[in-house]
Amino acid sequence: MNSYFIKRILYLIPTLIGASILIFFLYSLIPGDYVDTDPNLTAERKAELKELYGLDQPVITRYFTWVGNLFQGDLGYSLQFQRPVTEVLGNYIWSSFFVALASLIITWFLAIIIGVISATRHYSLFDSTVTFLVFAAMATPSFFLGLIMIKFFAVDLGWFPAGGMITTGSNFTGLEYFKDLAEHMILPVLVLVMLSVGGLTRYFRTNMLEVVRQDFVRTARAKGLKERVVIFKHAFRNAMLPAITLFAFELPALFSGAIITEQIFNWPGIGAIYMQAFTVRDYPLLMGFTMFIAVLTVISNLIADLLYGVADPRVRLK
């Protein structure tokens, strides 16, 4: 087990080196840089700035400087914010994280419940109605869904604020602040849940349907067990196994922000920053952020493999 774990960790190294090469060279292939975006600069000033930012160096040298800095935990220096990338990410990533976490928990909770009920009452009225609603929500574009929500819940009913993260000009502390934050979170979280719950529900429903047809579920029934035990102890655990992989892939998504939804609700998250960085060619920020997500993806992959071993005795390592 230990040697397996060490081997898996060692495998991460070439994967990450490959990722860093891809990320760095793809961004350097794009012509132009941050300095070129300002048309008011004189040629001399441009050259001066390029030298200052190290943009005049050959690509290979720049790559190794970048990777060398990565090893020291330095993701680069954001040109647009004139601050280290880690600091910029640190400022914005948590607001995205909380929205993503809330929507992830709600989505999985709903998808599991709906999926299991739909599967056990296959083709019932509940199954067809819920399947229809969930698909309708999934098929609607996020900008449209977001605007409808704002129009209905924020403008017409006035229940929730239309955008932002905290009430402007407010100075809440403690519980008050938390309540204000939660109110602002409800609509974006709702939109994100509606967008993703469909696919996941479908996934659990299919998995469950497949498992309840298995021989061992019939054996469980033949033992005279309660239907609840048959479904949750015997079928559900087996249906959840493939979901472990899926769940691990949600980990990087927690930090990557929701570009469109954040724009609509004016949420100061990383998705919005990411878009903005593109328009001003703030490549260090983009590269640093992409590398961060790459590391998270690789780690969550490892976690998925290890968790799978815990949950499924057939792949458990000796």
Binding site: A222, G224, L225, R237, N238
Partner: peptide, 21 residues
């Protein structure tokens, strides 16, 4: 009654037992 007064064994022993228990 099931598993108590009447019990049953099946054709495929490999798939008739739950793999995770």
């Amino acid at each position: 009654l099931r598993g108590n007064d009447i019990s049953m064994i099946f054709q495929e022993p490999m798939s008739s037992l739950n793999p995770v228990l």
